[in-house]
Each structure stands twice: as C-alpha cells, then as structure tokens.
Design a protein around this nucleic acid. Structure first.
Lengths: 338, 338
DNA sequence: CTTCCCTGAAAAAACGATTGCTCCAGCCCC
DNA sequence: GGGGCTGGAGCAATCGTTTTTTCAGGGAAG
C-alpha cells in the first residue's frame, strides 16, 4: 500500500534515493545512516513495490505462464512444483493456463505477451497436437520453452529421458525372465511415443530378444485405448507374458481389461507402467511403475526460459538426473513357464 | 505491441480520442467517420492494450487468483473450468496459486494484492487448516471468497450442498436394503466433514434406522486414513453391510484394505463414495459414487468475488443446482442377508 | 452584433517506479 | 586561489492508459 513517495517523505529523502536503496543499486550514493533510515521506514510501512508501476517502467512483467492440457495429474503436480521453485528463485510469478484455450488458430499466447501480462511461456502440448500446428503457434519465439515434447524445427525444450525410462521398465520384465514382452505405446506420430518405443526396443535388443511388431500397439495413453490394446494383445498366439504400458493411466485401463477377461496379474501376465502416481498404489494388483523426474523438468524449463529471456541461446535439454526409478509393487512376477 | 500514440498518429487524432473510442466510452465526442478510422487503424495494427499501463492508471489489475492446496485432482479440474469460465466472461485473468505457500504466518496473500498483481482471491483451504488460522489470514477482507469451506465469523463463501450429497449416498445404500451403514468421514472439527455427517445422519433418521456412534470413523480423507478406518470398522460386531466413504480417494484406500483382508465387495460389504472421478471407473470393483457440481462452485465463486470487488455485499452461497448425482457402478449391491 | 452553447477534438495531469543527469558543498592539490 | 574530484542527494523524464480540462469554431438565440 505504501508508495515510494510516502517512504521518501517519512525518511526525509527523495524518492530516487529510496528506490535505489531498496533495489540495492550499487551506484547509490547515500550515507550508511541514510540507507538504514530508509530501510527502516520501508519495513515499518510494510512496503511492497507496486507491480504495475514497475512493469510499466521496465517493460517486463516478471511473470511467466505454464500452459498445460490438463492440470489434474500428480505428474503435473511435480512439474508445477519444480516450475514454482525455479520461478521463485528468480523472483518471477507463475501463471497457469489451460491449453484447451490454446488451439492452432488462437492467438491467446500472443495476446498474453502482447498485453505484457507475461514475459514468456512454458508450454506442455497435447500429445495429439501436430508439429505443424505447434510450430505455427510458437514459431521460433524465444519466449517459449516446450516441455516433455519438442519439434524438429525449433530449439528451446526440456524433455524426459524417455528412452532410459522405457528401457528400465522393459529390462525389469527381462530380468524376471520374460521373453515375450509387449508394448502398449502412444499414438504413432508422437515424438514422445517414439522415444519410449525406442527404449523398449533397445532393451529387447540388448537382451538378444526379438522385437515383434505383433507385440506392439499404438493407440494412445487413455485408459480406454490401452484397455482395447490389451484385449487385442491377448488375442495373439503365443500371448505375451509381460506388458510395458507407456503411461500409468493406460496401465490402469489395461488392468481393468485384464480383470474383466479373467486374466490374473501377475501370475498370467505381468504389467509395468511408465510414470508413477499415488493411485498406482491402490490398483489391483498394485502397479509396478517407473517414476520419472518431472520436478526436474519443471525446474529446468523455467530456468531455461528465464535464460532465454535474458538473451542466452535456446537449448534442448534432456533431463537425465535423477535417473528413472523402478517402483516395485505387485503387478510383475516371473512368467509361469519360468 | 502497438501503442495508443501510434494509432493516434496514424489515424490523425489524439490519444485521448483513441482511448475512448476503443473503450466504447459513450461520452466520446468524435464523428462517426473518425471513430471508424480509429477502429480501422487499431485493427490493422493488431492493438492490444498494455496491461501495466492500464493497471497503473486504474489501480486494478483485472486479475484474480485461485488458491488451492493441490491442483492434481479431477475435482479441481471442474472447479477450475468453472472459475475460468466466469473469469473470462468478466474479462479477468485467472492465476493459480498453491496453498502450501500460504501458511498461517505468511503474508503471501497480502503481498500479492499489495503489489497490485491481483484484485482478489478464491481460496480453497486445506481441510486441516484451523478456522482461527484461516481467519487471521483473510480477516474480513472483501477481496476473498472461500470455496467448499466457510468459517463462522465471516461472509463470502461458496460451498457444495454436502448434506444433500452425503444423504444421497446413504439413501442409495438404504434403498438397497442395508440396515447397518457405516460412515468413513473427515476429520472431526471440519465444517465440511460435519455437513456430510449430517446428511448421513438425516438419511438414517428418515429411514427409521438408528445411527450408532460405533459405525462412524473420523480420520480424514486420505487413502491410508480411510484404509485404517475400514479395518477398524470390520472389527465391530455386528459388522456394517454398507459403508459411505465421504471422499473418493478415501474410498479407494478402503477398497484396498478390503481386498487385503479378503472381504469381497459388494457381496460382503457395499461401498459408496462421495465425489466422482475417472479413476472410480477403474477400481476393483468400479466404485459407485455421488458426483458433486464442482464446476458450478468455481463459476459462482468467481462471479461472487467480482461482485464483491464491485462493492456488493459478500454472500454465503450453497450450490444446490445441478443436484448431486448418483453414479452407479459395481461396488454396491443388496446385503447378503436380504 | 453579442452572447451562449454545442460539437469535435486536443492538451495535460495523473498512476508508481526507475534512472540518467544535474547540482552543490567541501576538500585536495598544484 | 582556482580547478577538479568526490560524496550526498534531488530533478525530471519516462513507461502506456485513462480521464478531466481546455479550446477553437460555428450556429443559434437574443
């Protein structure tokens, strides 16, 4: 509530001195005694700089927006926590926006930044938004950093090490003795889905197992899609003894399908899911998962964005630390035949 | 990017005229021809008003913050969607803040509003934040509307019709023929928990059933707490044949506990949960729930807040429409003995 | 022919913070 | 004793809008 003029008046100095002292301006020329008096009065009046005044003068809002397709996921929780942390450490405010207001044609992004409400964006796109649509939306704007996805044409992204994560999940099944391991993956043309599939293939290859196209389904991450994929996998002969589901929500749908069809997990088939969240503890059976470092993605994304705003060149970051972590629960076991 | 001065220059008028025309000020005095020319130029330059300039002048940010303890719930999704809708219809921007930065001692709220970043708050508190702490935090501030909770001392809240919701859940079990119906409720001193318990009691009373204290547990909404509550209920003699769990996450924990103990749902015991979310479809068995109108809560809360900012008196609203809705799945059935 | 009022529009004053510049007094050095 | 330097601080412009005030000219009323 208090303003600079008010502090200046009470401290018996001019506003410029107050401003400089409060901002720790090294070029300030004031006696230590004066400085202390100013700080004292500011504290007494509980001064906080008016945001609009500062933003107007500096032509920067010191605010960032995190745009996401859906907020209601524990994974996003982690991402948000990391982003919040990084924003706070740089004294930025973080806004959250829902991506469904951001369609290909819309200029919501440009409007937000045009109005000067935010200085930049961290953008998590829908997995089914095409590369072209995305590029037309953000072009080569230095004020945008993509998270968990990237596009070939532009720099500025922070993604998970999906290859390592999917590989870990697959290796877990291999180490239990499984030979016929299926993958329920994402939609075909998604970069994310491709990377996870690559990790799966890599693990099989290193174990000397053949990767069969009949063991791979690419129908997306929703519970329903994964349930259908699961059903279709059960129709193959010979059946897989283990399944890697490239998303935890999908894995939940897959378990539902298995239960419906009377296939026991893990005795008849093992299921391991990519991504961990609390509900995995409460499925039947409890899901073995691979936990990915989302917090770190949020953290790095915001830091990287702030760097970009400061003029540094855009980077493409793959978060490798902390490493993907296997969370062992009850949905995986050695195959029956073993 | 374009500014008023730029438009004024290109249209050959003064900035004041441009401002008035663009804001549709009825007191503007300009020839229709001039007006059109201004609008034309503004459109060509793709003008959007600079936010900081406007905020500084008007001493209002036209932004609201929605503060929540956790963002990662489908329930919050609904709330957010409603709040977003209402904010947009009034041309406000909506920020989302995590409540864990808002502890009793903190002045985050005051700082946000002191800086002029937001004009007001919609606050969803932790169920375990005490009334006193809350009141000290928001005092009688006209810029705050509480959602899903309220405190005795102040006005300005929007809550669900918890009584009706809990009653509907209980009545469902009664209509199936259950006589011994337990409640797994929230923590003892929460207003929300009390209202849900009241709905439960009301339904029992109307059906002429006795409400037994031994059938009520008040340990909170977390899956673990509810699991412990469930175990303890199984120890009573005679056992309940049906349970109302006052929160869907708790119900998931309760199901886990029942599975662990080898109690079949619904043949040995029926479970109905308060609140609906997608994962209820995928539990084992799929949970019967009562769906509450969260969207409407978000909508009304923001509208009410904007009204308050406009000087209207604060209200306490109970959202009764749309009515609580029973979502029938597989976790409830008539009791064995019936 | 004044006097008034109306129309159409420009000028100017905020809003609060930041920052380059100017001003002044005292002191040192030559 | 004058020039230059330094410490201490104030002045004033500026950011982009909104809004109050002012102003010029013309037409109508008296």
């Amino acid at each position: 509530m208090a303003k600079l003029t008010e502090i200046a008046r009470q401290a018996g100095v001019s506003v410029s001195v107050v401003s400089r002292v409060l901002n720790g301006d090294p070029t300030v020329r004031a006696r230590e005694e004066t400085r202390q008096r100013v700080l004292q009065v500011a504290k007494e009046l509980n001064y906080t700089a008016n945001y609009a005044g500062r933003a107007l003068r500096l032509a920067r809002s010191k605010a960032l927006a995190l745009i996401t397709p859906n907020v209601s996921s524990p994974l996003f929780d982690d991402l948000l926590a990391g982003a919040t942390e990084a924003a706070e450490e740089a004294d930025y405010t973080l806004l959250i926006g829902l991506a469904d207001t951001i369609t290909a044609g819309s200029d919501t992004l440009r409007r937000l930044v045009g109005e000067g409400r935010v200085d930049g964006f961290v953008l998590q796109r829908h997995d089914d938004l095409s590369d072209q649509a995305l590029e037309s939306l953000v072009a080569n704007d230095a004020r945008v950093v993509l998270v968990t996805s990237r596009t070939p044409g532009r720099r500025g992204s922070v993604i998970l090490d999906d290859v390592a994560g999917a590989r870990l999940a697959t290796e877990h099944l291999i180490s239990l003795g499984h030979k016929r391991i299926a993958l329920i993956g994402g939609v075909p043309h998604s970069d994310i889905a491709r990377r996870r599939e690559q990790g799966y293939a890599l693990a099989l290859h290193e174990a000397g197992l053949r990767r069969r196209e009949s063991m791979v389904r690419r129908m997306g991450y929703s519970p329903d899609a994964a349930a259908r994929a699961m059903e279709s996998l059960l129709g193959t002969d010979p059946r897989p003894t283990g399944v890697v589901v490239a998303n935890v929500n999908g894995a939940i749908g897959a378990l539902t399908a298995l239960r419906r069809l009377g296939v026991d997990v893990p005795s008849e088939i093992s299921v391991v899911a990519y991504h961990d969240e609390w509900v995995a503890e409460h499925t039947w059976p409890a899901l073995t998962t691979v936990k990915m470092p989302y917090y770190q993605v949020g953290l790095q994304a915001v830091r990287s964005l702030i760097d970009q705003l400061g003029g540094k060149p855009a980077q493409d970051i793959v978060v490798r630390e902390p490493k993907p972590e296997l969370v062992l629960r009850s949905s995986t076991a050695p195959p029956k035949s073993a």
